[in-house]
Design a binder for these strands. Structure first.
Lengths: 206, 206
DNA sequence: GTCACAATCCCACTTTTGTGGGGGTAGTGA
DNA sequence: TCACTACCCCCACAAAAGTGGGATTGTGAC
């Protein structure tokens, strides 16, 4: 935030959206889009080479779920403010993002003015969760299922369509072990079958 | 296409994207965005009340998969040109869209210029499939799995996380019948389990 | 140093899926 | 009429998933 200008990096794989967003943010006083990235990798690279004050980050990127990378990014760039820009209005996703340390959560079905408003608020040092997202959080006071490293790993493979046996082979673990992780995943995500597990995981983009 | 101006209706639930897209399309010669809609319902309503030459349609809308509605829309508005605007780069999705009678298929990771180019081409009477989408089609000459009404119905319920028994109850059919539909679905979608079925269905947004 | 918990493995048992057949009717188009 | 297909039902058996226990390490928090 040198001399009143907030330098912004946009990270989203939809160039179409990036184009439009860049224009409307640049029109706002005190905001300047200094770069764009299409993936987490590009985002990280840009951050290493350029000073950025605020990062607008899409949740789903070609190289993974960006929320998983938020802690890593904040560790390397502690003064950076991160605003998630998502089409997911899932309470658990929002909560996970907040827990990860983001400063804002905006929804893509907002119009440019609302987005600009949120970005300005965050640039100003506030925390800004879009009204719709906030409403969802209040309605659903469900706890966020906190998955362990292994559970996450197993879940990813389930979502790839692999069977228990195949996952065991892939991770070089015993069938029973995977059987157990799946049991825990079912409990944590409140799923009653493998198919249901895939549904929950896909919906909540865990 | 009265007097050289192509009247466009934008249908996408991401207002952010709509905002940007509207601006860049309006900047192009001969194109005018005459309306926007956030759902299939709104889209249909607008079409009934206003003359539109070209419809830019997102695949996933809150009230369903828009490709399923393309035939219906074309039936009611036969001279309308429909261009799909998708983030899905799945060959089967593209092929389904083409079979449904669309005039163009554009990807959201293109930039505004590429989108404008595609829209202009379609407005001009051409068929325009984005280069990336086209490349995918050549690589994967797989046949599109054509599902029957019932299969689609069953698949939707599978994607909701229901078990065979639950689906049977919901549709008031025998367990064996659903068992059979699931068998066919597995074969058609090349899935090897219920979980896999959910994966395929979600990926291909069937 | 105890306590919680991730991570790993095991057994036994039930239920659900998956696979391989076998039927039938009704409608559609050649 | 014949072929084809959607739609509906059935049996039997094998394989996978789900449920209820059990156990041993190691690590990090308090």
């Amino acid at each position: 935030m040198t001399d009143n200008i907030t330098r912004i990096l946009l990270t989203d794989d939809h160039n179409l959206l990036v184009d439009g967003l860049k224009r409307s943010l640049n029109e706002a006083d005190g905001l300047k889009v200094v770069g764009t990235a299409n993936s987490i990798k590009e985002c990280m690279e840009f951050l290493s080479g350029h000073p950025v004050d605020l990062l607008l980050l899409d949740v789903q990127l070609p190289d993974g779920n960006s929320i998983d990378f938020v802690p890593k990014i904040l560790q390397a760039h502690s003064s950076l403010k991160i605003v998630i820009l998502s089409s997911f209005a899932e309470p658990t996703v929002i909560r996970r993002a907040i827990d990860a340390g983001i400063s804002g959560y905006l929804l893509k079905n907002s119009n440019s003015d609302e987005i600009t408003k949120g970005v300005l608020a965050v640039a100003d040092g506030e925390h800004y969760i879009s009204p719709e997202a906030n409403a969802l959080l209040k309605e659903a006071p469900k706890h966020v299922p906190s998955l362990t490293r292994r559970e996450r790993e197993v879940l990813h493979l389930v979502v790839e369509g692999l069977s228990t046996k195949e996952i065991a082979a892939r991770l070089d673990l015993s069938f029973d072990t995977i059987h157990d992780y799946l049991r825990n995943l079912r409990i944590k995500l409140d799923a009653k079958s493998m198919a249901d597990l895939v549904c929950r995981a896909k919906d909540q983009c865990l």
